[in-house]
Write a protein that binds this DNA or RNA. Structure first.
Lengths: 153, 153
DNA sequence: TATTGTTATACTCTATAACTATA
DNA sequence: TATAGTTATAGAGTATAACAATA
């Protein structure tokens, strides 16, 4: 019988299962949140929001870069971008040197909406985080970049 | 202009956005993992796996309890259970006193498969976790139950 | 020939609404 | 009337395959 250690590298499989299930569960819980309020414009899905936030943060990005960044396949990102563009939140422009590529940038309404969503749509999670102890928030704050590191590999 | 603190309760909105995006991205990354190897039986989706694991851990559960536990609606859990039952991984039995309820328990093949999946299907995440520093793993170990607490609210 | 991006199509997961059976 | 579970149906999100344009 294995002794199933709870610490050290050998505990990785047990931690993997716990994390995998916890992440999936919280992901479902978050996705279920009804977006924004009655007065809101067409709401953004989480993927759309993340894509818009990434575009704004990087200044400009190509669809391929976005797909890699958000861990979806290019055709999936095409749909996300189409939606953002239809809403006037991002604008395409031709790549300066490579005719195949497209450059995406946030429009002024896009930046406005982003700020608004940040203020309002994340209310649920913000509220829950506020109910944690400072120590717990600190752990999550340190965990977030590690989760991103895992996503990247 | 707000100063956007990075620590303390007031930082919750910023942390909320970071966590929300990180969780969604890692969730997509994990879901994309191609399950098991060539010799494997019909693979389990992550939700199916989590349900089976919960049933085994609790000894027995009702569909309603499972749905609440995994943050899905009852009809969604019905499908998950139907799949597990069709594969012979869980068995239903009538509730001892309440004729409406159903009791679910893992079968012997179910327990076997669970052990096998634990050993094999989580290889990717286990590998990635093994590449982290012990300090990083420790942070994730502490973060996992906090994520669960967030899911529960 | 390789790469970017798109179109067409299909699948997985989950939800809501309506129904049945039991309490 | 209220609750557990199921059936029927629909929608969101993402994937793969095939194609067009450019390098």
């Amino acid at each position: 019988m294995s002794t199933s250690p709870t610490r050290g590298p050998a505990a990785a499989p047990a931690l993997a299962e716990e994390l995998r299930i916890s992440i999936a569960r919280l992901s479902r819980r978050l996705r279920r949140l009804k977006p924004a309020g009655p007065g809101a414009a067409e709401p953004l899905s989480l993927t759309q929001f993340a894509a818009l936030a990434a575009i704004e943060r990087h200044g400009s990005m190509t669809p391929r870069e976005l797909a890699d960044h958000e861990k979806v396949q290019p055709p999936s990102m095409t749909r996300v971008i189409a939606h953002l563009e239809a809403q006037g939140l991002v604008a395409r422009s031709p790549h300066p040197t490579d005719g195949r590529q497209v450059t995406l940038a946030a429009t002024e309404p896009g930046r406005t909406l982003l700020a608004e969503e940040r203020r309002r749509k994340q209310a649920w999670l913000t509220q829950r985080l506020g109910e944690l102890t400072p120590q717990e928030r600190e752990i999550l704050r340190r965990a977030a970049p590690i989760l991103d590191k895992l996503s990247k590999s």
